[in-house]
């Protein structure tokens, strides 16, 4: 039953795209089993250490998010920028692994955990501008709309369905156009915005 309902919501999203169907009240489709599988990474990267304990801005490392369609995985150089100077953890296995890659100038082959199909063009820059720049919302909250509460986890894991119906559920909501304005606007619902 649950499965079927989910699909039917998707189909409604597909076939009655711009109808007024309870858009504003519908919560984004997000149930527990939308959590993606645990994916083994070459280095078990602790997001909680960086984002929560250290309070580092997401975009300090994922710096491309505000400039490009993809957020990007930080270059090793970036990791080294800090870790070169952090003596306390230098002998930890994960950091040793990091230094090994750096010394060998060997890039790390991470596994993608948010791999959309090729016909979907998600654009980080647009979303960062809309919510962080225009609405002045906290970075972690905004990233969390799609990536969940990253600061509570270690290795990144998909938290949301990232399906079309799910995207549309948010695009159909009325979002304030900036942090003070009363005016609201919905996300685009033209096919070509995402499917080019």
């Amino acid at each position: 039953m649950r499965h079927f309902l989910r699909l039917s919501i998707l189909l409604i999203g597909l076939f009655s795209g711009s109808s007024s169907f309870a858009a504003d009240t519908l919560p984004p489709v997000n149930t527990a089993d939308d959590l993606g599988p645990q994916v083994d990474q070459p280095i078990e990267f602790p997001h909680n250490r960086h984002a929560k304990d250290m309070g580092i801005n997401c975009m300090y490392c994922h710096t491309y998010a505000r400039r490009a369609p993809v957020a990007g995985i930080p270059p090793l150089q970036k990791c080294m920028g800090c870790h070169n100077g952090i003596e306390s953890v230098k002998d930890k296995p994960r950091i040793k692994e990091l230094f090994k890659h750096w010394d060998e100038k060997k890039p790390i082959a991470w596994k993608k955990v948010h791999d959309l199909p090729d016909y979907v063009r998600f654009n980080h820059e647009r979303h960062v501008k809309r919510f962080i720049v225009q609405q002045d919302k906290p970075v972690q909250e905004v990233c969390g709309y799609c990536h969940g509460d990253v600061k509570e986890g270690t290795v990144a894991r998909r938290q949301k369905p990232l399906s079309m119906g799910w995207c549309v559920s948010c695009h159909e909501k009325a979002h304030p156009t900036d942090k003070t304005a009363q005016a609201t606007a919905q996300g685009p619902n033209d096919c070509w915005q995402c499917h080019k």
Partner: peptide, 16 residues
Amino acid sequence: GFTSVQDGVENVVSYV
């Protein structure tokens, strides 16, 4: 929709 997002299949290789 639901099965098209891949987790942990392809690599993303960051620059050194």
